[in-house]
Design a protein around this nucleic acid. Structure first.
Length: 606
DNA sequence: GTCACTTGAA
């Protein structure tokens, strides 16, 4: 691992530097060379604050510290890395101008530009850049990185295009600029134009795809990278795992884990957390837990990921127990941790625990609730049937309620058949999120439950009139390390014929076991038989039929869906688990459902 | 002797 991320090599020589530091602090007139060396040692060991403290302590006693260009540039680097107060950096800049180093020494000039950039003054960085009598690749790269860090990609591109000579760092920085902005197409253009691509190039491009939720392309690139013989580092693996999590590609993710086990000495914090997240999101919560237990050091994110993972698997009590353990071990929770805690309560219906934790956030842990936490509370109360209390909470909250809040209330109205509050929520949603397709379907289902067929017809008309694009339900399943996607009524799969005959057999067996199609849920204005067929061809059922075709008897089938689980499918899958003697793990938009022996882990509370 | 790549939720 490189020193910047791991710090291994620098840390090994540490006692020596401590001795140097002690000598310097005691000395009346500190030696300039020692001082510079000590500052550099701190910088290399990723301790910029120490470096800055040393600089400030020594400056009054060692004015000659700034009298040679090397020491001066190290001092500037200390300011840059520790984001020092602007005044200190500016005084070093003035010093560099007085001594003539700013003009004569490119290294000093570069350090000045970087110092201003890292202290948040890109304007001054730019001035120093423009005033440079000469510019080399390094100087340009620093300016380029400054714009990229502020997401000013257009400015970055101007610098990039203006460079007479570019090295690999220039290309990689530009690529990263597009990657963080989610401009995947531009990123790919730069990637394709890069000669001699290294781990940085590949990692950036993979993360661009992962960030843009083009996870299949991310994994394709990952394969290509291995084929070309590039050795991945921790950062590459974290991005690859993010793509696996998104796609629920458990077996590819497990390969990455295998790679880590056989090649890395110990689990890096971020990589470990990414592994936990991957296993949890791919439906294998036990493996997530094993990685968690094996990690030698954990930070808030590690704990939060595990808490959230268990919460999403409906293991509310375990999740809360882990939270208590985290607190008792002295780890300070953050806002995300509490999102996990509230989700844990929501998925199991622990209303009073949820209220208690919500109160304790600011009172005991100094974490102020955000609109997202209020969203979780509305969800928690509403789902548990306290619709009126949820409505009161929305009125009393210190934020303007957003679409997500009203959407949560609307969801509660569907479960608890509250047409009146549903209409109020819908009125708000029409303003805040007029194109969101889900609410119209929800309200329509609420009308259907209340036998208000005029209401259903009205919703159908509204969807048509306002040309709301309904997001199609999509389910996927991993087979032989490839993700197979299905949409409702899909016939595009190469094995479509087999899938449909399996589906037919499956539906017959379910009906014999007592399954009844919930045709009321079908929004289209079609006859009963067509409604039954429409339900039977839901994407979940197609994916499961494919799973039954391709997996061994008794093995677990894992399905991922982009929307909330459909009620008819939820009921059908319970029958499937019984009739076929299979475990099925379904990830929907919100949580996991573990089906076994005719029951679901959510106990129909979701 | 400097510059570039990363995770958590609704």
């Amino acid at each position: 691992m490189r020193a910047k991320t791991g710090g291994g090599a620098a840390a090994a020589a540490w006692p020596e530097h401590l001795a140097t530091h002690a000598r310097l602090v005691k000395s009346a007139s500190p030696d300039v060379l020692y001082a510079t060396t000590a500052m550099r040692a701190y910088l290399r060991a990723c301790l910029p604050l120490q470096s800055l403290l040393l600089l400030r302590g020594l400056l009054p006693r060692a004015p000659r510290l700034l009298a040679n260009s090397f020491s001066l540039s190290v001092a500037l680097q200390a300011c840059a890395s520790a984001a020092a107060p602007a005044a200190l950096g500016a005084s070093l800049h003035a010093c560099a101008l007085r001594s003539g180093f700013a003009a004569a020494d490119l290294f000093v000039r570069t350090a000045i530009v970087e110092m201003y950039a890292k202290c948040g003054r890109v304007d001054l960085a730019r001035t120093a850049f423009d005033e440079a009598p000469r510019r080399d690749v390094f100087l340009c790269n620093v300016m380029l990185a400054a714009y990229v860090a502020r997401c000013e990609v257009a400015e970055a591109r101007k610098v990039f295009d203006g460079m007479r000579a570019k090295d690999l760092v220039s290309w990689n920085t530009m690529l990263h600029g597009y990657a963080v902005r989610g401009q995947v197409g531009m990123a790919r253009e730069i990637f394709d134009g890069t000669e001699g691509r290294d781990v940085f190039s590949w990692s950036s491009m993979i993360s661009a795809y992962a960030k843009g939720r083009r996870s299949k392309e991310a994994l394709e690139l990952w394969r290509e990278m291995l084929a070309v013989g590039i050795v991945p580092d921790c950062i590459t693996l974290v991005s690859v795992l993010a793509a696996c999590s998104d796609l629920a590609a458990l077996h590819i993710g497990a390969d990455v884990h295998q790679f880590v086990e056989s090649n890395m000495v110990e689990l890096d914090l971020k990589l470990g957390t990414a592994l936990i997240d991957m296993y949890a999101k791919c439906g294998d919560i036990d493996s997530a837990h094993r990685v968690f237990d094996a990690m030698p050091a954990k930070d808030v994110l590690t704990w939060s990921s595990m808490i959230i993972g268990m919460a999403n698997h409906g293991l509310g009590h375990d999740s809360l127990r882990l939270f208590s353990k985290m607190i008792s071990e002295g780890m300070k929770p953050n806002g995300i941790t509490f999102i996990g805690v509230l989700i844990a309560c929501t998925h199991v219906g622990l209303v009073s625990d949820g209220k208690k934790h919500f109160r304790s956030m600011s009172e005991e842990h100094g974490v102020e609730p955000t609109v997202e936490h209020y969203g979780c509370m509305v969800d928690l109360l509403g789902r548990a049937g306290h619709v009126e209390e949820a409505r009161q909470l929305i009125r009393s909250m210190p934020f303007e309620p957003d679409a997500i809040i009203w959407r949560a209330l609307l969801g509660a109205c569907r479960i608890h058949k509250n047409v009146e509050v549903a209409e109020e929520a819908m009125a708000k949603l029409r303003v805040l999120d007029p194109l969101g397709d889900g609410h119209y379907v929800l309200l329509s289902n609420i009308y259907a439950q209340a036998n208000s067929w005029e209401g259903v017809a009205e919703m159908r008309k509204t969807i048509k009139r306002e040309s709301i694009q309904r997001i199609p339900g999509r389910s996927s399943i991993e087979w032989e390390k490839t993700i197979h996607d299905f949409i409702s009524g899909d016939r595009s799969h190469p094995r479509s014929k087999e899938i449909y005959s399996m589906l037919e057999e499956m539906m017959d067996r379910l009906r014999q076991a007592g399954y009844k199609p919930m045709t009321d849920l079908v929004l289209q204005d079609i006859d009963e038989t067509s409604k039954v067929r429409s339900l039977a061809e839901h994407s979940e059922k197609l994916a499961i039929a494919f799973g039954l075709l391709t997996t061994l008897p008794k093995s677990t089938i894992r399905i991922t869906k982009n929307l909330r689980a459909c009620e008819d499918c939820h009921s059908a899958i319970k029958f499937i688990s019984l009739v076929y003697g299979r475990k099925l793990i379904v990830r929907d938009r919100n949580r996991f459902h573990h089906f076994s022996e005719g029951q679901c882990s959510c106990k129909d509370y979701w």
